[in-house]
Amino acid sequence: MILPDSLEAGAPFTVSTSGNGKATLYVVGPGAAIKQDIQLGGATAFPAGSLSNVGHYVACLAWDGGSINGVFDVSVAAMVTELSFLAKPSRLSVGVANGITGTVYLFDVYHNLILPPATVSFELLLPSGSVVKRTAVSRGGAAWIALDSSAQQGNAKFSAQVGTVSSTRIVEQVPGDPCRLAMSAKQVSGKLELVTEPVKDCSGNPVPDGTIVTFTGTHNGDQSTVDVPLKHGVAQGELPAYPGEALSVASGVVLGNRIVWEK
């Protein structure tokens, strides 16, 4: 029995035998088993795709009165046809050093991990239109990279490419903590109406609507608070009006200005 010396995953192959008469050929390997009745003394052809999983295979030829065994290996196809691209995180703040990581796993057409080194091109298209390009060589079937998030909020297109195969993910870059939180107060029918200036992060990006801003008023040891969400970029809340009341504003761990209501 003559088996192929080297076989690429999915490639057609033949098994040659000597002698005469009928026999049964068994081929067993990772996730695959073939049984075929053959005529001894000729070559038996197996079509493309018969053995698609990479690994070590055992062939057994059995006939009346005897059997022989042989082994051969099926190797990965050289061409990358599929990428599994993990981009993390899908959402992060602007201006984070090495905050965006991309990991690519290379596969052939039969989903076998391609272990030989291959060059992977990473590209991050930022909301500003500028592009950050890097390359990495795969090791053990994977290539990875870390990139900074930009200063401008918006969606960044993060793609990885090997040859003609590419995969793209969207990374949402969101504003950071408010940088300067400033409010003003005016009295409206017995209550104080507190309004912030448009709230922005330190890169000038508007902090998204829905972000909670806390207004606090302190008067003679009594305290009133209200948590309000940003709407159209500003927070607006109402508190009881007392002369001498100290008013403050905060969002998360960021404190804003303080006002003492004198009227």
Partner: peptide, 13 residues
């Protein structure tokens, strides 16, 4: 939803 907004008034120990 960001609604409802609840004011906590006259907190006093």
């Amino acid at each position: 939803s960001a609604d409802p907004v609840i004011e906590i008034a006259d907190q006093h120990l």
